[in-house]
């Protein structure tokens, strides 16, 4: 085992580099924007029909939920095939000679791509809200404190998500074939993170399980606080669950990465 640098510098650097790289993909951002707005509107029209004659408050909450999901879509679903390419091409050998903690290095890189990618789509999506008719628009947060809770939880959620993704990457490293397993994982992710239908609409009896499972930590937990400002104990509980999952997922991810990297076969020459 080689010595590892103790400082945070390499991780901050890879974070910055990946963030810069992401800002170069403007055409992709535009394409994603159009798709996300279209899907957002389709879902909103569907819920408007579903809630017809029902509670206007619940409808407004659901519309807000749908928009937040679409705005942070890029955070949830990143199409960064870099790791797979590195493994297939043998380029991973160069990655391994860096005297860094590979797992942390990769997670830092992933967080940067997701956060910056989401921010790039966020601003135009907010601008679009201004030209939409009032009944299709996102609502404002429940208050300044509620927005603060949302923002804090979103950052924690993004880290939690990347820890989760690193586990999936470790699985990919083993099988090399990404298609089958990643297709299923993508759908699991879309369903249990609230992208297909808001998690708040799942049966009431299942809500306790639904809101504390790992997929809900990234975006569902912050959205709930955006809509309804949490009391202090509630807030503490939410953050504790998020951070708790980070530790659990990190422990699993780390051990899997170490095992994978130890018996990794470098392809090609």
């Amino acid at each position: 085992m080689m010595t590892k640098l103790k400082s945070w510098r390499p991780y901050l650097t890879v974070f910055r580099l990946r963030a810069l790289m992401e800002t170069q993909y403007r055409a992709a951002a535009l394409g994603g924007l159009v798709t996300q707005v279209f899907f957002g509107l389709v879902y909103i029209f569907l819920y408007t029909t579903l809630y017809a004659g029902g509670s206007p408050d619940l409808l407004r909450d659901t519309i807000t939920y749908v928009w937040l999901q679409q705005m942070f879509f890029r955070m949830m679903f990143s199409a960064d095939g870099e790791l797979g390419n590195l493994i297939m091409s043998g380029g991973i050998a160069y990655m391994l000679v860096r005297p860094v903690d590979q797992h942390r290095f990769w997670v830092a890189r992933d967080v940067a791509g997701r956060l910056v990618g989401a921010m790039m789509r966020l601003i135009p999506m907010l601008a679009i809200q201004l030209i939409l008719p009032k009944e299709l628009r996102i609502s404002l947060p429940d208050g300044a404190l509620s927005f603060f809770q949302f923002a804090v939880s979103l950052m924690i959620g993004c880290v939690c998500l990347c820890e989760l993704m690193s586990i999936i990457d470790a699985v990919t490293m083993k099988t090399l074939d990404k298609r089958g397993i990643s297709a299923i994982l993508n759908l699991t992710m879309m369903t249990f993170s609230g992208n297909v239908i808001p998690l708040t609409l799942f049966p009431d009896a299942l809500q306790t399980i639904i809101r504390y499972q790992p997929f809900a930590q990234a975006l569902d937990a912050p959205i709930r606080m955006y809509q309804h400002c949490a009391t202090l104990p509630q807030w503490a509980l939410t953050v504790a669950v998020q951070v708790g999952w980070i530790f659990i997922l990190r422990a699993i991810g780390r051990s899997m990465w170490n095992r994978r990297l130890n018996d990794l076969i470098v392809q090609g020459g």
Partner: peptide, 11 residues
Amino acid sequence: SIEMVNILTYG
């Protein structure tokens, strides 16, 4: 490939 064309198909 242009992602936007997808909205009619998958949308």
